[in-house]
Design a protein around this nucleic acid. Structure first.
Lengths: 207, 207
DNA sequence: GCTGGAATACACCTTTTGTACGATGTGGCG
DNA sequence: CGCCACATCGTACAAAAGGTGTATTCCAGC
């Protein structure tokens, strides 16, 4: 029997996960918490096999910080739950020692298999997302320089080259040069396509 | 018995709402949909009393657009589900005829009372949103036509005008005409700025 | 049966953007 | 020191996008 603790600030999500796990004979939901602090405390006290951790907790410590503390306990594996796979802090959670991550809109089968492989200690990420994550982390040359990222941010904000040049105290030519490099690295050939690609890869945050 | 249809792209959320409604004697969940299109179709066919509508649907039409179409049917009341009450498009949903809105992190009691008051025809707006509604002057026509939304979606995907024209079986000039209208409605003057504005207003999905 | 929005389409012109050559300076590193 | 990535600027040209004006069709609403 795999003992699971769930940490999520949304009652709806907790209820949904609870319902999804209810039908599983080899999984038992032993505790729920709405905040990171409570989650850490619960993990310490109940020593579950797996902790399902939401990243965007409304109040208190962030999910990745809670993950770090739970991993430090030594026992439980942490599976990160997140709404968007474009989320930049998935990497932070992995870095904090999360065993894997799951999209909240994943079908319930993915949830079950992910829990089981996490409990089994396999540090492999969920199959459906593993390739995407790996592709993002070690993609060929998607490493934009700081300056290029800055330019890309302004492009995504809808600024033209001249506006960007003024904003960054550059000549328009330099902005263009940066853009050429950005296009090459992202494999696109227009500013709008670059924004689309950057959002898809989580290089910039849409807001 | 209040008949309810649920529209949300997240299986976890659907499962959670379903579990929350299961214990209610006077509420019956008669249908679920994962996309706006399916939701509209379901509302048309089942003629429920209340439709629970998520705003951020992963693919297809936006929740506010689905709300508009369902309200146009005449029968069902639409109760909007949203993750953050800072969401800009709550107003769009209210404008589209939603009876009220509900935060996803609301306790289950709130959900039940909101459903009942929606079914009774009275609107359930949280104070914070109500005040913002009062303080806001009528936004100048940000309602894009379906065709314009379609064009905007392709623009956000990074396509050029010619590619869009081929994709939609149009002439390039027609695409341009649509874009001119889109720019006017969004208050911008370039395709990239339009994408930025559309993402900020939740008109299109980033990913 | 008229009005008006939506969708379609074109011409003409200006501005912006992308591309293709360059070029210089700086800082880190083997 | 020499190499290289990064950042900076230039000119010139081609392609794409944006701006303005006009026009037709269709369909819904008054």
């Amino acid at each position: 029997m795999i003992r699971v603790v769930l940490v999520d600030d949304h009652p709806v999500v907790r209820s949904g996960i609870r319902a999804m796990l209810a039908g599983q004979p080899d999984v038992e939901l032993v505790g729920e918490a709405a905040t990171g602090e409570d989650g850490v405390e619960l993990a310490r006290r109940l020593a579950p096999d797996v902790v399902l951790m939401d990243l965007q907790l409304g109040a208190g410590i962030h999910g990745s910080e809670a993950t770090r503390r739970i991993v430090a306990l030594g026992g439980p594996r942490v599976l990160v739950l997140t709404t968007f796979d474009t989320d930049a802090d998935i990497l932070a959670a992995i870095d904090a020692g999360a065993t894997g991550y799951l999209l909240k809109d994943a079908p319930s089968d993915d949830l079950h298999t992910a829990i089981r492989s996490a409990a089994a200690g396999s540090s492999a990420l969920a199959p459906s997302v593993a390739s995407r994550l790996l592709g993002r982390v070690r993609a060929p040359d998607t490493t934009l320089t700081p300056r290029e990222l800055e330019v890309l941010g302004h492009v995504a904000a809808g600024l033209g080259n001249r506006q960007i040049s003024r904003e960054m105290f550059l000549s328009e030519t330099t902005v263009k040069t940066h853009l050429v490099h950005i296009y090459a690295k992202l494999g696109v050939d227009s500013r709008t396509a670059a924004v689309a690609a950057a959002i898809r890869k989580g290089l910039i945050r849409p807001s």
